[in-house]
């Protein structure tokens, strides 16, 4: 890894330039591949520039939560694999991986892109548990958007296993699959960082290191569904208002990539 001087990035931004010559609101190249893991009900591998995340969806039957007896359960976890960055340490999930998983979880959950009521098998007894596991393979900045794209791409291509009955007890078939998940729309997060007085979209690793503050905004079509501010400085109200609109515009670009996944 080449160490880039953070001051250099700040100086360049003042004259309107990013390290990799992108426009201020331009995403890096996006590659989405799906269906690569045989054992998973849904899977994807997403690259955003050199940032790379694999997502796998596993489904099983479980008991619903008492306050939502007729709804399936969504769970998102993230693993920062140590070869993805020299910064990643061993041990139990730290702040970064917990935040990553929870921000992706909230974007998917709050947008209601999955109709969890349709994932009820028998009220109060059996519902589908949808586990989304994210493996970060390479961290070159903006893990949140990459992981969210990966999670959503995997969910869009997930096939629900067939339920067989052993007497009264439902059993998940290991081989046979039925239909797709009940999907209502496509939600994505769009992440911005503020460096000095400049705001850039889809920050690369060095831009993340140079950033004063970060904002990730979830959206589904023309609505916002989640937000998370990061970084040790703040945003002004005007900046947040501007980013709320930009999130929809940039979100639509990301959605186009995901729509392609559904068609394929």
């Amino acid at each position: 890894m080449i160490e880039v001087d953070i001051n250099l990035i700040r100086e360049m931004l003042k004259s309107g330039k990013r390290l990799d010559n992108r426009k201020m609101d331009e995403y890096r190249e996006i590659h989405i591949e799906t269906g690569l893991i045989r054992q998973a009900e849904g899977s994807s591998r997403v690259r955003l520039g050199n940032t790379e995340v694999i997502a796998g969806v596993k489904m099983g039957l479980g008991k619903p939560y008492p306050d939502s007896p007729d709804e399936g359960v969504l769970s998102v976890a993230a693993e920062l694999v140590q070869f993805a960055s020299p910064e990643f340490e061993s041990g139990p999930p730290g702040e970064q991986s917990i935040e990553l998983a929870r921000v992706v979880d909230r974007c998917i959950r709050e947008s209601k892109m999955i109709d969890t009521e349709k994932l009820c098998v028998k009220e109060k007894e059996h519902v589908w548990m949808v586990y989304v596991d994210l493996e970060v393979l390479n961290d070159d900045g903006n893990l949140i958007d990459t992981a969210c794209l990966a999670a959503v791409a995997a969910l869009l291509t997930t096939k629900i296993p067939v339920i067989e009955y052993d007497g009264e007890t439902p059993v998940v078939s290991l081989e046979r699959k039925s239909g797709k998940l009940p999907i209502r729309g496509i939600s994505v997060t769009t992440t911005f960082v503020k460096i000095g007085q400049t705001i850039v979209t889809d920050p690369g690793l060095t831009e993340i290191d140079a950033a004063d503050a970060r904002l990730s905004i979830g959206s589904l079509e023309n609505k916002l569904c989640s937000m998370q501010k990061g970084g040790s400085y703040g945003f002004s109200v005007e900046e947040i208002e501007k980013l709320a609109d930009l999130a929809i515009e940039k979100g639509d670009e990301l959605r186009k990539h995901l729509e392609q996944v559904v068609i394929d």
Binding site: E110, L224, C225, Q228, K229, Y233, F235, V237, I240
Partner: peptide, 11 residues
């Protein structure tokens, strides 16, 4: 300055 911002819900 806004130093914490989180949101859950569609809007």
């Amino acid at each position: 300055q806004i130093t914490l911002l989180q949101m859950d819900g569609i809007v």
